[in-house]
Design a protein around this nucleic acid. Structure first.
Lengths: 191, 191
DNA sequence: CCATTTTTTTGACAAATGTCCTGTTCAGCA
DNA sequence: TGCTGAACAGGACATTTGTCAAAAAAATGG
């Protein structure tokens, strides 16, 4: 009997009874999307934080020049949204779309706050997840500070070995902050 | 009658009674450090998260080549520590030291968790602060993805206008991920 | 105030990366 | 089946940034 992936993630941090998890799950709504579908447009309000059950999404920033920069991928068990727009109820400056058909559980800010209030364990969970996310971003920044494109690429390979098979290299390049031409050259030059 | 800077920061997010703030403050310990003093060495456990009352600290990563990369500055009202080592009780991979004589309020992980448990408002505060920190790091990453050294520099100037007066430019360069020579050349080439 | 150290700037050159372009392969689709 | 566009590799050259060396400027300590 397999536990729900969301429950599994929560219980890595706080334990829940069956009733408690039912209560938690009531605050989510299932949403499915198709490949290429845009979930959040620039300028829209970010109504939901998405827990990815199956599939692959990404968060993109559109440049002044129209270039797109990938801030984040979201595979299974990742949370994905425009964090600033979602938490501050402001219009999104980012775009969220699907690279594959994707099933999610969506959580509104109101539901998140209600959950945090009525089941304090869940606030503990959100705090721990956010802290871990903060630490992960610090590491990514450190990577920008201390590594060249080649090292950043190989760091990414070991960090998310599954990603490269599911995502075009041009997007990997975008996530790494280099052009696809540069990434293409790295692949062969050096292991 | 001026409020305590820590209270002021907390009350931007959750309101506290005088008694509650007294209770909060009991969990902190005043610690003062001198310029150049190292607060957290690589390999040490990060016992505390520091709220900077007065002064200036920084968090540094030491390279394999011995080069240092500045991950974060911490001025007045900032929180500073090795987040990963602090929250996971692991040995620090970063160094925290003082660029000026600095007064802090230190909070241990045990105190932070006790406070979160006994005064849920404080957990709400910590969650909001961490979320804001996460958003700030996302923006810094976006800056690395989409901007060259010159734009990153001017972005930093507008973001923390006070910083440049208090910190040698070589350290600003380190924070931006460029050499001091490159930064020096930018300053004049372009506004 | 001077002496010393730290910080900043500058130049010449090397290395990394970006830009523009072409050609090839391959998957998806009419 | 053949067409089309996406993905990828590669060349030629421009631009940005790094490296090393040295001088100039500013800060610090006695």
């Amino acid at each position: 009997m397999n536990k729900h992936p969301l429950r599994q993630q929560i219980e890595e941090i706080v334990k829940l009874t069956d009733d408690e998890f039912d209560f938690v799950l009531q605050h989510f709504r299932k949403k499915s999307f198709k490949k290429h579908q845009i979930i959040l447009h620039e300028g829209d309000y970010a109504q939901f934080d998405f827990f990815v059950v199956k599939g692959l999404m990404r968060v993109t920033k559109l440049d002044f020049d129209g270039k797109e920069h990938i801030l984040q991928f979201g595979m299974e068990n990742w949370w994905i949204t425009d964090a600033e727009a979602f938490h501050n109820k402001t219009k999104s400056t980012l775009i969220v779309d699907c690279l594959e058909n994707t099933e999610t559980l969506s959580l509104s800010l109101e539901s998140k706050e209600k959950l945090s209030r009525e089941l304090p364990k869940m606030q503990t969970f959100f705090l721990k997840k956010t802290t871990n996310g903060y630490i992960a971003l610090q590491k990514r920044i450190l990577c920008f500070l201390s590594s060249n494109a080649n090292d950043r690429y190989h760091n990414l390979l070991t960090l998310y070995p599954g990603l490269i098979q599911r995502v075009p290299k041009a997007m990997i390049a975008s996530y790494l902050g280099v052009t696809r031409e540069t990434l293409s050259r790295l692949s062969k030059i050096k292991a």
